[in-house]
């Protein structure tokens, strides 16, 4: 018998990773946490380490509301060169 695959096609187009640049003191690093306990604590330590090791001076924080899609602000998206996200549980 011929069976119709109930799964089939997924809606995704391949998106290549953005080319990276060296971290410099003027690099703006976004720190994006979800609302779960300690996600912000982990990122806080990452912030400290990036500042120590790579001399990064500017960090922008964005904390997502629990269980909601992230509503990033234009400012966050426009100003961050790179983003480190911590989504924890």
């Amino acid at each position: 018998m011929d069976i119709v695959n109930p799964c089939g096609v997924f809606e995704s187009s391949s998106a290549p990773l953005t080319e990276r640049q060296p971290l410099r003191p003027e690099t703006v690093v976004g720190l994006f946490a979800n609302d779960k306990k300690n996600a912000d604590v982990l990122l806080g330590h990452v912030q400290t380490l990036l500042a120590e090791r790579c001399s990064v001076q500017t960090f922008h924080w964005f904390v997502k509301e629990a269980s909601q899609p992230a509503a990033f602000t234009d400012e966050f998206l426009d100003t961050c060169d790179v983003v480190v996200a911590a989504v924890c549980d």
Binding site: V29, L49, V84
Partner: peptide, 23 residues
């Protein structure tokens, strides 16, 4: 949490700076 961050920071820096195709 600080220990976890210290363990990962090398890979975090790599993820932010290395060649995209290699990543």
């Amino acid at each position: 949490c600080g220990e976890f961050a210290a363990d990962l920071i090398g890979e975090v820096v790599d993820a932010l700076t290395q060649d995209a195709r290699r990543l």
